[in-house]
Design a protein around this nucleic acid. Sequence first.
DNA 1: GCAAGGTC
Length: 847
Amino acid sequence: MIVLMIAEKPSLAQSIAKILSNNDLQSRKGFNNACSIHEWSGKFMNYQVRYKMTSVCGHVMSLDFVPKYNNWDKTDPSELFSGETLKKEATPNLKMPAFLEKEARGVDYLVLWLDCDREGENICFEVIDSVKHVLAKPNDNRNIFRAHFSSITEQDIKRAMNNLGKPNKNESLSVDARQELDLRIGCAFTRYQTRFFQGKYGDLDCNLVSYGPCQTPTLSFCVDRMDKIKSFKPETYWYLDVELQHSKTGQSFNVKWSRNHLFDKDVVYMFYNDLKQSSSALVTNVNLQEKTKQRPIALNTVEMLRAASAGLGMSPIHAMQIAEKLYTQGYISYPRTETTTYAANFNFKEVLVQQTKSSSWGSIAQDLLNGNMVNPRKGVDQGDHPPITPTSFASPEQLPGDLWRLYEFITKHFLATVSRDCKYEELTITFKIKSEEFSCCGKNTIENGWTELMPWKQIDFKEIPNLKKGESVQIGHIKVLEKQTNPPDYLTESELIGLMEKNGIGTDASIPVHINNICERNYVKLERDRRLVPTNLGVVLVHGYQRIDPELCLPKMRSQVEEQLNLIALGKANYRDVLKHTLRIFEQKFHFFVQNVSLMDSLFEDSFSSLSATGKPMSRCGKCRRFMKLVLSKPQRLYCEYCKDTYNLPQNGTIKLYRELKCPLDDFELLINSINKNLNHPFCPYCFNNPPFDDMKKGDGCINCSHPTCTHAFNSNALSKCFECQNGLLILDSTTPPKFRVICNNKLCKLIIILPDTLIKADVSDDLCENCDAPMLNIVYHKDKTPLENGQTSTTACLFCDNNLKVSIENYLKLANKKINFDRKKFTHKHKSAGGRRKKRVVHKNW
DNA sequence: GCAAGGTC
């Protein structure tokens, strides 16, 4: 009998397999190269069985609309609230369903070891759906089990194995509902907003005007802070500035008024007038207190990201990439966790021993091993993964750049959690001048403790004079000072992470993605000290939602949906009912938004320029013969003011007019898309958006156009089938004479052959090469550089056979370091002509 | 081309 067990990720499959097999197992790689299968023999329900343990990589499936809704032009966004959806493979490269099916074929028992959260419960059912039909008893749910574990410790894993339960359908359904809501709501609003605003404004500078239940509240936090700054009214306040002078040492020091500051000038002057004649202050109290600055709790993801942003200047998304590298290379434990408490059996000694090798903190690790280690503070156990700790020693030489900086932080943080608290004494001296009280405070470190590892957290030493109760101190001066309150500053990335966590926006794994999204979409800009400053676009979006339906950008919107989802998870509400109910609310919100979009639009009008006011005249429209404008800000596009039509353009490279040449199909003037100095694609802006032939795709240019006679289409310019990709056609590019190149019309093929720079003219002749049957080139050489005899400059030659021309192919192969044995027979046309007779060429795609 | 959630 075979028991198949599935974990959520390869690393966990390995850890769990090691524990359950008592480290006696065989491992092999799965066919998708991502997952391994670990096998051992043992007992299961009193049977002698063979265990097979493997994993998925997160979700197996993801939700999307059926293909017919992919076309933004043909779908009204409101249809997305009811349009049919389908589950498709989350990561097609991994071929996860096929992999699972293969490993599950004929298996007797299935044990699910997915993470013990709702997403994990959902993945359980994705796994079941993938394998159920190939199990030994496909229709017997009694052979499917769920392991419930809260940590990856031997005790917990073995206990889970001995107490197998069943997967929880309700929890899984709550995730299905979440997926469907996010998809429908996010896509409907995003498509509507994008179409509406991009169709009106030319300088939004973003490809997408997106909406999402996490990204939008995230943006809203940043805009709220900006609003607080903008609406801040400074207030003037006054306070007594008192300097005292130690009579013996002559040392002068400032003392703080117990009333701090007051916003009433007259009242402050009243006190001032009362005190100004005084010459001395009386020490009324001297208080020496020992204080502690507590060692940090164990590190979880969010805290690591905050520290990486604030202390190391790394964006959260970058910090996570670095952390994942450290993890896969075995330097740190799993970096996505909410838990801040170490497992009961965590082996501190082992980690400390590893770190004694460090030249920088080795002595501290040794000191902790020598009996000076203290128990870590108790944090929170979320039951997901242990806190982030180093798992092996690394030196700065082993880890370049940011890998080292993050590893250093994680290691120092770990050492800090088991180091002694920082202790310092605080001396507070209280004075009285008449009836007003003043004080000053000195600080002195007794023991650095854990702050030894993080000097920037150490206590700043502050000296104050040594005074005794009852002593009298001379007054240096008493003044009234006037100051103003200051506005808050823009939100730092680190503060934003804190706000998101507090409000339940995103998860440890997705918080960095949401922050990255609002940066990439150009809603906020990252400025000094990693502060997030909203752009015009970010501001008008949030202010627009606030005008139309403030709930759309409030964090509570997410939590209210979560509450509904909780009901499903707890089995208190029916999945379909909740989904239907919540979708209806959002559909109504969507329609209300559409009806009132002018409220948001008026804000856009103030900030952005209309399409017609932006851009520069570019080329003539084939419909009205008027000039269309090129809108340069993202997304680059052409706009015909008269016809009110927008034409998408290639997004890479520059666009210029192609010698006022016209497309024979629609009269639109042709353009050239220059991707780099050697790669130019002519295209018709109309055909680019509305392909004229079945074999042409949206986004294709002239070299992919099968027009039978147009001089720009491949029928007129193709020389042969591409010898590099065997897929496309080699096309003569004569768009920028006197430079000539041969390129492949397969977008995925990178081939570029640069023809000799001695040429001044080249086009494709009607003659075919006698030798290889490829179309010949009519060429003209520069009169001073011609390789032809008798100073002759023009000729007809074959690229593949002519000695002067085929050099360029050899150069290409040399440059690309290709060892293709160039065989011109490969290019032989199947209808080889007899004796080089002129004939009209027709290039077939299947050349 | 769109969301958010897993993870590689």
